[in-house]
Design a protein around this nucleic acid. Structure first.
Length: 644
RNA sequence: GCCGCUGUAGCUCAGUGGUAGAGCGCGUCAUUGGUAAUGACGAGGUCGGAAGUUCAAUUCUUCCCAGCGGCACCA
């Protein structure tokens, strides 16, 4: 039996529907049921997303994607971008459109326009988008030859679109999508019509500048960001989430909790206040213990060294713009932007035998980098910072073991600070780099082998390595969902060569060590910033600037409050006492707002019985304990995780 | 660095072409109250900096600085 004209569509459940000729996704969906027809967004045809209106002409495996599928959101957002572009072109005909993809949580569209959009414009544009959704315009797919498409867009005055299409290989068919009078180059797929985006499920968020094709040599376009969701409820939930995240912003909490501040005279360089510095010191002490445990030796090197050293190391070439310099003694000194060259100097002063390797030199190294003004961001991106830096000098065959041990140490540290979710990226050779390809081949292969044996999942980050070697990046996420690189592990064959490091091998000959650059926190500043957001300012006991406040119900208990306070501080606890003649409600409220983890309240009863009533942050429950028990409980809880 | 927005008391913010106001915080006094705000009084500001327009600028204009949102950058 030959029924070749028939088209058989196999659904995910294995059932087959047969049609006498080409059939569209919409037809299929309607045949299955009206509910599905309404919910359908696109159709998967042999693993590819197709528009519902596109005719399927061959036997295929198909699956209808509805707005419940995850893929649907991306399509929805992409549609929202097109509707945005249509609205802008209607309102501002002189504007040229460029690109507008879906992104996490929403979409954007880049426009070329001599004058930027204002926030008032956004309101008007948003209204027009609602109108376009209400018009429920069909979104129609069509194909065009590349050269015809270039001409088509040129004639329309859309130079950017024409440029994009011209970059597509010749002879390839271009897909275009039309909705109303708006027509755009687009891979698709799209929803069947503009009415499928809920008019109360999206919101324009902000305007921003963005370079054409992401290149800072190009002109700046006007980008409009928006968010879009399946339902109004989802949109609202997202906006609420944003608000909540803003409350955790380390810059806000840093001021509220008196942790640190910045000021004009030292842009990007934090002033640490007692509270913030207490946290910093706890972390430093912890890291010092941890490094000792893992066989590191701590050193300290100068804040600035003669430019000559940076020229030898290659930093002057690759890093010049980012170094602060000081003229003195007829020399040019550069504030160190990294510690590595200094560490090599320390290595070079010892006659090191292969028996001494791996040699692990650690420094809480204070660095300065001239970061572009626009890059500064609270504690996350600063111009002066301290790295928990270390360099492991080792032989080639020790790289793998060192990497595995390092990953273990890093995960332990992150866990102790409450971070279980760590992204790992592998970055290979960048375009501008030192060292020849053989060296890079070797370094990349060694690092890949090492990360594989440490069993971590990682993603590839092509071309993002350091100029001297490939690296692993360990990334944590802040409250607003921005990723920040903290830890790093870099294999470096180049610097030992440039700075002439060597050790004596078993053969009594000189050998070049490999240098492994590594950091776990990255910078104390950034790490603390992330820590603040992670805990929303409610630090665990071992990190909290003030661990406990002692206060009395009335001033009758002042002497007892003093005595409790003395005993707490004698135990090494970070205690405060509050002897103000305020009501207990007021004092509890204030210390709760200050995010102090424990409050010891004492009244006449407690004084008589030598007890304290403990109130813990986040709980309304009170617990009266013997003073000695309360103190020993707190002492135990105050231990760092590695000391418990 | 680029585009846009913002910059007023310690903090959060209102306001005006005729040299400023609130709440919290701070100080003093009163109050001694059992777990998220007791009351009264008081101190505190060259309105980010410089120039210009004006009889008069915190307010309008220009430049600079810093912060915020993006972009680029993050060795």
């Amino acid at each position: 039996m030959n029924k070749s004209a028939d088209i058989a569509l196999t659904l995910p459940d294995g059932s087959v529907r047969t049609y006498p000729g080409p059939v569209t996704g919409s037809t299929l969906a309607s045949d299955i049921g009206p509910g599905l027809a309404k919910a359908a967004i696109v159709i998967m045809v042999n693993g590819e997303q197709w528009d519902l209106s596109r005719a399927i002409e061959q036997n295929s495996d198909v699956a209808i994607i509805t707005n419940r599928d995850d893929d649907a959101l991306e399509i929805l957002r992409h549609d929202a971008a097109h509707i945005l572009a249509e609205a802008v072109q209607e309102l501002f005909p002189e504007v040229q459109v460029t690109i507008g993809p879906a992104i996490d949580n929403g979409f954007y569209y880049d426009f070329a326009r001599p004058t930027p959009f204002t926030t008032d414009d956004l309101v008007i544009i948003e209204q027009r988008m609602v109108e376009i959704i209400e018009r429920d315009e069909d979104i129609i797919r069509s194909e065009m030859d590349r050269d015809a498409a270039v001409k088509f867009f040129q004639d329309m005055g859309e130079a950017y679109k024409a440029e994009l299409i011209a970059a597509i290989p010749e002879g390839q068919a271009i897909t275009l999508y039309r909705q109303g009078d708006f027509i755009d180059l687009c891979r698709g797929p799209h929803l069947p019509s503009t009415g499928r985006l809920g008019k109360d499920c999206f919101k324009l968020m902000k305007v921003a500048g963005a370079y054409w094709r992401g290149d800072s040599n190009n002109e700046m376009l006007q980008r409009i960001y928006g968010t879009a969701w399946r339902t109004k409820k989802e949109l609202k939930a997202y906006l609420t989430r944003l608000e909540e995240a803003e409350k955790r912003d380390h810059r806000k909490l840093g001021i509220q909790m008196k942790l640190f501040h910045f000021q004009e005279e030292a842009a990007g360089m934090p002033f640490w206040h007692p509270n913030g510095w207490t946290i910093y010191q706890q972390i430093e002490t912890y890291m010092r213990r941890k490094q000792k445990q893992y066989g590191y030796q701590e050193i300290n090197t100068p804040q600035m060294v003669d430019r000559v050293l940076w020229e030898k190391s290659g930093h002057a070439d690759k890093f010049n713009e980012h170094m602060f310099t000081v003229e003195s003694d007829n020399r040019t000194y550069a504030l160190k932007p990294m510690n590595c060259p200094c560490h090599v100097q320390v290595f070079n002063r010892g006659i090191v035998s292969y028996r001494d390797l791996p040699l692990r030199l650690a420094e809480f190294g204070s660095c300065h980098r001239y970061e572009p003004s626009g890059a500064l961001h609270g504690l996350m991106r600063v111009r002066s910072f301290v790295q928990d830096d270390a360099h492991i000098f080792c032989s080639e065959d020790q790289i793998t073991d060192e990497c595995i041990t390092f990953c273990k140490m890093l995960l332990e540290v992150y866990k102790d600070f409450g971070f279980e979710d760590v992204k790992v990226k592998f970055s290979d050779r960048p375009e501008i780099r030192a060292g020849n390809d053989d060296v890079w081949d070797k370094a990349e292969a060694a690092l890949i082998a090492a990360v594989n044996s440490s069993g971590l999942d990682y993603s590839l980050n092509p071309g993002e390595g350091a100029f001297y070697g490939p690296k692993l990046e360990f990334v944590l996420t802040d409250a607003i969902g921005r990723d920040w690189q903290c830890g790093t592990f870099q294999v470096d064959y180049v610097l030992p060569e440039r700075l002439d490091a060597h050790y004596i091998g078993t053969d009594n000959d000189k050998h070049r060590p490999v240098m492994l650059h590594r950091a776990i926190l990255g910078s104390f500043e950034r790490f603390i910033g992330i820590l603040i957001e992670e805990h929303a300012g409610r630090f665990p006991m071992w990190l909290a600037p003030t661990q406990v406040v002692v206060t009395g119900i009335t001033s009758e208990q002042d002497d007892y409050v003093r005595s409790v306070y003395e005993q707490l501080t004698t135990q090494g606890l970070r205690a405060e006492m509050d002897l103000r003649s305020e009501k207990i409600n007021y004092k509890v409220r204030e210390h709760s707002h200050a995010k102090t983890p424990a409050i010891f309240v004492v009244g006449a009863r407690e004084e008589k019985e030598n007890t304290v009533t403990v109130r813990r942050l986040g709980s309304k429950q009170q617990q009266t304990l013997d003073l000695t028990d309360a103190i020993s409980n707190l002492t135990l809880e105050s231990l760092a995780p590695d000391q418990r």
